[in-house]
Design a binder for these strands. Structure first.
Length: 979
RNA sequence: GGGCGAUUAGCUCAGUUGGCUAGAGCGCCUGCUUUACACGCAGGAAGUCACAGGUUCGAGUCCUGUAUCGCCCACCA
């Protein structure tokens, strides 16, 4: 006899066992066989190596694993490519923070290589933790192909792509205002700027006109940052302003500095209106000081009017004439070296002293602060590398007939630009978002796309492979440089009269040496993290090499991610996939919900409301976590998960969620029911199966299984997750356990019945395990292994043959079994269940002990009566009866309790409790009357009868008929009780 | 400012193309050592479907508006 399942379900044990089966079988690792038609590929959204995974990652990866396991069981050659992202600024920042806290050293206290080494060490630590977490969750990734966005394979792709872009003229050098943190002297990404409300001021500064215009001697500008006035290069006013005609084109003399600056007309300026609800209009004077070097809006105005750009600050935020301010004379000297806030006061004092301060007003406004140093950020001008996203790519026009070189309809996006390459597949339906609404995010972002700044002033990342000339002025390229260029090892471009060289291949030390010898030096910056992420679907597969992986698995099938990176990541992968490989990297983009805590707040470290997946695995088990996560995954954009503290057996107090209880309870039920089933399956002989001997309950459970298989397939094909798992839950628990298994118990002691019940049970259990496997892989694999030992041969001869499989993970996915669909059996079982429930209810109401065997009968139409009589044992077994009889002419016996349900009147013999009975019947009467009134009202409405679909009207008539009969029966019983 | 989502039982959520006396899990109440499971079994109570209009024979479901909560993007002299 085979050993049975252990008595107690222990997730940790089963997780270990199943994992070892999968590892030994190498089931996660597909061969790159060159056959793309039978492949199914997903690339993981590579988690940042900044920190361990949180519950959102657990959800994200559970969903991917469900799909990949489903596809694997369908027989596809599946790959799930794992890996991590170096996450430039985020990782560098956490490491800097840690080093500062632990060693009191700052980044600039290190040599670049040493510092990068420290970040690398952090990366190694967290990468290991992240991969460990993914494995613990059961993710069936191809670990042998694990990649990292900065490893050699990915770096090669980065360099190849960069060189291609550079050669195609899509990379250029441009000026840009960045978020500068003067305290740490680094650039911050937009999302690293925290907005804080500040009680500030509006200062109204009077700038004198060079020549009076009528009575007007001054124009007054309003500013919250007076210190930037040193860099003003214009005063702007709205052309619709009544004073514009007289003033535009005149000059003002900038106080302190003495610079003559023009008054220009620009629509951007808000017209003054003290009565307006618009804050800006209230405070506006109609005159706007324009400081292109220190304000993003002013920068834009400056661009439109070709204004000079004068930077008056040093990188530390102090006033300085060393960074682009050339006309600082002795009048301004007192400000040099002052901190920006000191300078602000000094300038305001100066204006006050000169009688040029018109007014000061209180003003509450939002100011961007560095999330790291918490000082206000400074918009700061710097040189950056950009990718031109709307520039037509000439090399593409020639080779793609579909790209005519025109614009995409209703946009200014050329079809053969990078933006166009990403937008086109969505518009022609090759790229699909699920849920569909997210396509809009993608589309509108691309339609309004601006050039992509790709350089970052960091040390952690892919160093930009561009060498720029050291000396100012035009230079002559040497012979050896020209040779390198002609051989394709370097590309050379000119930006603003400066020469820049891009070196094609990493490790081409000879080229580097030559270039550097000729007076070029490598750019200090690194690439935006998203540059390498954009290549992820093919860099991981060895592009630009023509690898078997690319041949087999590219283009891939689906991408599963969170909505906040649709723009930053998804669109750029499509863009670069098209540009580099010539095809979109995936056809389906599934966007899942964001997990919030019980109060609808984002889970975050600072709030302490996050849940570590490993903790959830400790507290409830990996399968339980996956069950709950998938059962929550509907198409809404947020889901809530109440968080509560719990003490683990080892004494740790941790955050977990009571919602995981559902998953754990289900796994426990699955374990115990399977254990019980298998205790009765010893000696099952498939050859004894005879489909003609199936009883009603067999036909019913097989029909329910057939429907469940069909439903599960439909759902998974449509990326629905909560629906199939919740339906499987109901099927297993409510149909199989609550009914079929209970009915099977006595059959297991019956020589004739045993074999048929065993075969059906073994088959249904087998199929259910397969259907559940993608969702809860560990426990199902474990039970399946045991089932293989106890019932090696399963299948229903003449209905379904089952191939044996050494492991569930590669077992064949259940195909549809249409011949098992049996509506009649389902309806008949429902009648039987109704009868049983009704009797149970009466027993409960009258406090009849479960052990007490009763007699019951039912008055019901001939057809149903036949079904009930043919299967009276089913009723007796689960309703605690010794006898049951149904028939059209059955009368209520003396002393019987009566219940009316649907078209049945059920009598529980010798159970009368007149008081309780009356109470119950009166209550039911109320309900029936209420229902009857509603239906009568409906049918009394001529419009309903005439306009509604005939079958709906007919349904209502039948309903009314049934209610009338019920009411009649109830009243009769009440009368008898009272009589 | 632009876009999107949510609002249904005490809590967390389902509710397909309009056809309901509106469902599930948890929690709550009443029983139960019934040949696996108390992480269980049987039964039960519990809802003005956010609000106001509209379309329709019929609205939780469709349309318009309002409110509240939340997310994304852009911006703030």
């Amino acid at each position: 006899m085979a050993e049975q399942l252990s008595k107690v379900y222990e997730p940790a044990t089963i997780e270990k066992q199943s994992m070892s089966i999968w590892t030994k079988g190498k089931y996660f690792h597909p061969e790159a066989d060159g056959n793309h038609d039978n492949s199914y590929a997903i690339v993981i959204p590579p988690p940042n190596v900044t920190a361990a995974l949180h519950l959102g990652h657990a959800l994200n990866n559970t969903l991917q694993d469900i799909i990949i396991r489903y596809q694997r069981m369908l027989g596809k050659n599946t790959i799930w490519m794992p890996g991590t992202d170096h996450a430039g600024i985020a990782t560098q920042t956490v490491v800097e923070k840690r080093i500062l806290a632990e060693e009191n050293r700052r980044r600039i206290d290190f040599e670049r290589d040493e510092f990068v080494g420290r970040v690398q060490a952090w990366k190694d630590e967290y990468e290991a933790r992240i991969l460990g977490q993914l494995k613990a969750m059961g993710c069936s990734c191809d670990w042998e192909r694990t990649r990292f966005t900065m490893d050699e394979v990915c770096a090669k792709a980065v360099r190849a792509n960069f060189f291609k872009l550079f050669k195609d003229g899509l990379i250029y050098r441009g000026k840009r205002l960045v978020n500068w943190d003067p305290a740490t002297q680094t650039v911050l990404a937009d999302d690293e700027v925290e907005h804080q409300e500040i009680n500030g001021h509006f200062w109204y500064l009077k700038y004198p006109l060079v020549e009076k215009v009528g009575d007007i001697e001054h124009v007054t500008v309003a500013t919250t940052r007076p210190e930037t006035m040193l860099g003003d290069t214009a005063v702007a006013m709205n052309p619709r302003d009544s004073r514009a005609e007289a003033l535009v084109g005149k000059q003002v003399r900038l106080p302190i500095v003495g610079r003559l600056i023009p008054i220009i007309a620009d629509e951007h300026v808000v017209l003054p209106d003290p009565e307006s609800d618009d804050e800006k209009a209230k405070f506006s004077t109609g005159f706007l000081k324009v400081t292109p070097a220190h304000d993003p809006d002013d920068w834009a105005i400056g661009q439109r009017h070709e204004l000079p750009v004068i930077n008056v600050m040093a990188p530390d935020g102090s006033i300085s004439d060393q960074y682009g301010w050339e006309d600082a004379d002795e009048d301004a000297e007192f400000l040099l070296g002052m901190d920006r806030y000191e300078a602000r006061e000094a300038i305001v004092d100066w204006f006050r002293g000169e009688n040029l301060l018109a007014e000061v007003r209180e003003y509450v406004h939002e100011v961007g602060h560095s999330y790291r140093s918490h000082v206000p950020i400074e918009p700061y001008l710097s040189d950056q590398w950009y990718i031109a996203v709307k520039k037509p790519i000439s090399s593409l026009v020639a080779c793609r007939s579909s790209l005519a070189g025109g614009f995409i309809e209703n946009t200014d996006v050329p079809e053969n630009s990078l933006a166009g390459l990403a937008l086109k597949p969505l518009l022609d339906g090759r790229l699909k978002f699920i849920p569909e609404r997210y396509a809009k995010t993608y589309q509108s972002w691309l339609e309004n796309l601006r050039d992509w700044p790709i350089s970052r002033q960091l040390w952690w990342g892919h160093r930009i492979p561009i060498w720029g000339q050291i000396e100012e002025g035009e230079i002559q390229l040497s012979k050896e440089i020209i040779q390198l260029k002609e051989s394709g090892r370097i590309a050379v471009n000119l930006f603003r009269e400066q020469t820049y060289i891009c070196i094609n291949k990493a490790g081409d030390n000879e080229a580097i040496a030559t270039v550097e010898k000729n007076g070029f030096t490598q750019d200090q910056d690194v690439l935006d993290t998203w540059f390498s992420s954009a290549l992820w679907p093919f860099s991981t597969m060895g592009w630009p090499g023509e690898t078997d992986e690319l041949k087999t698995f590219y283009p891939g099938n689906m991408l599963c991610t969170a909505r906040e990176i649709i723009t930053l990541w998804v669109s750029r992968m499509v863009m670069m996939g098209q540009y580099c490989v010539g095809d979109i990297p995936f056809s389906d983009v599934y966007i899942h919900a964001m997990i919030q805590d019980g109060q609808g707040r984002k889970m975050s470290k600072s709030l302490g409301n996050g849940i570590d997946p490993l903790i959830a695995i400790d507290s409830h088990g990996a399968d339980a976590m996956r069950f709950t996560l998938s059962s929550m995954t509907t198409e809404t954009q947020d889901v809530r998960m109440p968080v509560s503290e719990m003490e683990l057996p080892d004494g740790r107090k941790v955050n977990t969620s009571p919602k995981f209880d559902t998953g754990r309870n289900f796994c426990n039920k699955l374990w115990n029911a399977s254990r019980f089933a298998m205790m009765n399956l010893e000696g099952t002989d498939a050859s004894e199966f005879d489909k003609d001997k199936l009883r009603l309950e067999d036909k019913w459970i097989l029909s329910r299984l057939a429907r469940t298989i069909e439903h599960t397939n439909e759902c998974l094909d449509g990326y629905k997750f909560s629906e199939p798992i919740n339906n499987l839950y109901k099927f297993f628990w409510n149909d199989l356990c609550d009914w079929y298994l209970e009915w099977a118990k006595p059959r297991m002691n019956d020589a004739v019945q045993k074999s048929i019940a065993q075969n059906v049970l073994a088959f249904v259990l087998d199929q259910t395990l397969r259907l559940l496997h993608p969702f809860i892989p560990f426990i199902t694999e474990g039970i399946f292994g045991k089932l293989n030992e106890i019932v090696p041969n399963r299948g229903l001869a003449g209905i379904v043959e089952l191939e044996r499989s050494e492991a569930l993970i590669i077992a064949k996915w259940p195909g549809e079994i249409n011949e098992c669909k049996d509506d009649e059996a389902q309806v008949n079982i429902e009648h039987i269940q109704t009868a049983i429930r009704t009797i149970r209810d009466m027993r409960s109401k009258y406090n009849i002990a479960p052990s007490e065997k009763m007699a019951a009968s039912a008055a019901v139409g001939q057809e149903i009566a036949g079904v009930l009589n043919d299967n009276s044992s089913l009723v007796c077994e689960l309703a605690g009866l010794e006898s049951f009889e149904a028939g059209a002419g059955i009368e209520k016996p003396e002393n019987a309790a009566a219940a009316i349900v649907e078209q049945m009147q059920i009598y529980l013999h010798n159970a009368i409790d007149p008081k309780a009975e009356l109470e119950r019947l009166n209550k039911q009467k109320e309900q029936v009357i209420k229902g009857k009134k509603a239906v009568e009202a409906k049918l009394a409405n001529e419009n309903f009868v005439n306009k509604a679909k005939p079958e709906v009207v007919e349904q209502s008539r039948q309903k009314l008929n049934e209610l009338n009969q019920q009411l009649e029966a109830i009243e009769k019983h009440i009368a008898e009780l009272q009589g």
